[in-house]
Nucleic acid binder design. Structure first.
Length: 542
RNA sequence: CGGAGCGUAGCUCAGCCUGGUAGAGCACUUGGUUUGGGACCAAGACGUCGCAGGUUCAAAUCCUGUCGCUCCGACCA
């Protein structure tokens, strides 16, 4: 390609709309342009890099035995009703109506479609296992699109779905995808690492996310350098010891704490109750049912864990008004000692770290009062114990007890073992060797292709611009003749090299613009071609 | 949706507080000079000052509403 024939609208300054390096560079190097918030046009250069990533993905998916298909972006709501996700995923679904007034969903993912296909076409264990994939535009009504391609309303995703006869088979399919993902990101020039993950609204039992370390990432990951344990902070656990029991103390005693509504205030004079000797009482509404949650004063509730442990599909903190209605006190004075909701039985979930804790202090459900000498097992009726806390850096690794570290990362891929959740609801069953009808055991696997593109830029850039890894560079070689006069020695040689490299299948761009050398050098470095061949009189003379 | 900020030329921004003929740099067009690290000279083109309403003799500027964009939070590939 000759530079003057394509469109590479480089910008000298970063547009004000872009905050992070990769977003600024994608705009400045002329790879993408925004049409609306979270909606982008790919220019020729951006599309070339995207296609290279897609090609790597296809090669590795094919190598792993997956079959490429193309499913509709326009999907009938009925199958979403059938899977139950019309409700659970409602927030992210784009809903459109046709001229007859019939409603459609724009595909945010395709479990329902592929499972419907499998229900119709797969009848025998002899046809399994199968793994189908596609690379296509997905739509999600993101509440807040962010950072260019990082979180967009419309984006390109590779999604794959495996069907197996047994759980062990499904695990093997899962492992194949896991391995393929590691290869895909490595081939894209990315340093990625897999972490244990929560399964969220997709559902399922077993899941890993592939992360790219980046300060601008939207995820936090806890990891252990000693043994390799790594998990999304939403999922991570640590080996923190339970709260140390003390001598069995006196009976529960109420004492006045006028104006004290925070853990910190209670930890100070004159009360001096250390945060780790306090029980924090939170009120949450889980699927419209109120529950009390007990967490140690120095810990933070992990809402993802709360939803995962309780199976709730929606969780939110109760409002101060709801709390007063339920408990008769305001936040800051709440407790679970003998308390009941005014309507119905109370449900109390307590964090494992509080097991056996005594001589604790907690709110008295009366504004301005707390209880001391509380023994959680003696004085509080705990409905169920769960691991509900968020791990902190420095805590001992669950596997090897070495200190955990925490860092931010970009999620570029996610693999799930789904089990039979979708196959049962959508009747994707088969007959086994004995003639018994069984639901297929499924897995699903996603890669954010456009996000991966931006992750490459985020991970690989310098002060002058993008530094493309060889495998995904829009052009591998940029030839920069300093004279573009036809017939001049520099331009003649440039065209000769261009012809030879192109004939060998190398992606080459020749900067034939009649601009000063500095401009051409700066532009080539901004775009970040792996190799530049500069040809001028000085180099020719040598 | 809650909190914060911003909408003036293709891009970066000034002007707004204190109302009175809409500006700069870069980019663009033409001519000339220049040519190994974002050149220079001259001439030129480019604006419903996001939109709507109000106040005023007069609004980019003041007031109200509205739309859009960005950041923090809830959501995720």
């Amino acid at each position: 390609m000759y530079w003057s024939k394509t469109l590479i609208p480089t910008l000298r300054e970063a547009p004000a709309e872009a905050e992070i390096a990769s977003h600024q560079l994608l705009l400045r190097a002329g790879l993408i342009r925004k049409l609306a918030g979270g909606v982008y046009t790919f220019l020729p250069l951006g599309l070339r890099a995207l296609r290279k990533i897609e090609r790597i993905i296809r090669e590795e998916m094919d190598r792993a035995g997956a079959l490429e298909v193309a499913m509709p972006a326009l999907q009938p709501p009925e199958i979403w009703e059938q899977s139950g996700r019309a409700q659970t995923a409602s927030d992210v679904l784009f809903k459109v109506k046709d001229s007859a007034g019939r409603q459609w969903f724009l595909s945010p993912t395709a479990e329902e479609v592929i499972t419907t296909l499998a229900a119709g076409e797969i009848n025998s264990y002899r046809q399994l296992p199968k793994n189908f994939y596609q690379v296509s535009v997905k739509f999600r009504d993101e509440i807040r699109p962010r950072f260019g391609l990082m979180r967009a309303k419309e984006f390109i995703m590779k999604d794959a779905y495996s069907f197996d006869t047994t759980d062990a088979g499904a695990m093997a399919s899962y492992q194949k995808m896991y391995d393929a993902y590691a290869r895909i990101f490595a081939r894209c020039g990315l340093q990625s690492f897999p972490v244990e993950a929560d399964t969220g609204v997709i559902g399922g039992s077993h899941s890993h996310e592939f992360m790219i370390p980046a300060a601008t990432g939207e995820n936090e990951v806890a990891y252990c350098e000693a043994c390799g344990y790594a998990a999304n902070i939403e999922k991570a656990t640590s080996g923190v010891p339970a709260t140390a029991p003390r001598e069995i103390g006196a009976a529960v005693e109420k004492f006045a704490t006028p104006g004290v509504v925070t853990i910190e205030a209670l930890a100070k004079e004159p009360y001096k109750v250390a945060a780790n000797r306090q029980i924090k009482t939170l009120v949450y509404i889980l699927d419209s049912k109120p529950v009390l949650i007990l967490i140690r004063g120095d810990d933070q509730l992990n809402e993802t864990k709360l939803m995962a442990r309780t199976g709730a599909t929606a969780a939110r903190p109760a409002t101060p008004e709801e709390i007063f209605e339920l408990l008769g006190a305001h936040p800051g004075s709440l407790g679970a000692v003998g308390s009941t909701f005014k309507s119905g039985a109370k449900t109390v979930y307590a964090d494992e770290r509080l097991r056996g804790a005594n001589e604790m202090t907690t709110g008295a459900n009366e504004d301005g009062f707390h209880f001391r000498n509380v023994s959680i097992e003696r004085d509080i009726t705990v409905t169920q114990w769960f691991d509900l806390r968020t791990v902190n850096a420095g805590e001992p690794c669950v596997k090897c007890a070495k200190p955990l570290k925490i860092r931010r990362a970009i999620e570029v891929g996610h693999v799930f073992k789904l089990g039979t959740k979708y196959s049962e609801k959508l009747n994707a069953t088969f007959l086994d060797e004995t003639g018994a009808r069984k639901p297929a055991v499924m897995g699903c696997y996603g890669i954010g292709v456009t996000r991966t593109l931006q992750a490459v830029v985020e991970q690989s850039h310098d002060k002058d611009g993008i530094v493309w890894p060889l495998a995904v560079a829009p052009y591998t070689v940029c030839i920069t003749p300093l004279s573009v006069v036809p017939g001049s020695p520099a331009f003649t040689l440039a065209e000769k090299i261009y012809t030879e490299l192109t004939a060998q299948g190398v992606d080459v761009i020749l900067d034939d613009r009649d601009d000063r050398p500095g401009v051409k050098f700066k532009d080539s470095e901004l775009v970040g071609f792996p190799i530049r061949i500069g040809i001028g009189e000085k180099s020719l003379a040598k």
